[in-house]
């Protein structure tokens, strides 16, 4: 019986870690996406100061999450978001609304991809 208990406990630990990881990534992705949406809304209203503040908040929050993401997902996916957020900040400062809005969509898509890759959809498994 003890022979079964040890691997069973280890398996439960792995599953728990996987579940926590899934929750952490999806939760943070939704939070980061909400920041990008509010930055986008601010830019649409012509409030680039507010948009810049939101993008800076996004960068700050993502750098905290990114440290963990580097350990669990492919590095290029995290790098894509970092580069994209740097471009966002530059576009914010240049007041180029259209380019800023399209870059925001690119960043949101990258975040969505990171979140979707973690969810065990049949498409992901296959």
């Amino acid at each position: 019986m003890r022979n079964i208990i040890i691997p069973a406990v280890l398996f439960i630990l792995v599953i728990t870690f996987v579940a926590l990881n899934l929750f952490y990534i999806t939760d943070n992705a939704s939070r980061l996406d909400a920041i990008l949406v509010s930055a986008s809304d601010a830019a649409k209203n012509g409030d680039f100061e507010e948009a810049t503040a939101e993008v800076e908040r996004f960068k700050e929050e993502f750098s905290a999450v990114g440290k963990y993401l580097f350990a669990v997902i492919q590095h290029n996916e995290v790098d894509d978001v970092i580069f994209s957020s740097n471009r966002l900040l530059a576009l914010c400062n240049a007041d180029t609304k259209e380019q800023f809005l399209s870059e925001i969509e690119v960043t949101r898509e990258s975040i969505k991809l990171i979140r979707d890759a973690e969810i065990p959809y049949l498409e992901n498994i296959l």
């Binding site: 599953i15 990881n21 899934l22 669990v72 890759a117 973690e118 969810i119 065990p120 992901n124 498994i125």
Partner: peptide, 11 residues
Amino acid sequence: MAVAVIRTVIL
């Protein structure tokens, strides 16, 4: 991660 675990078990 969950996908990796499921794929590993299937394989």
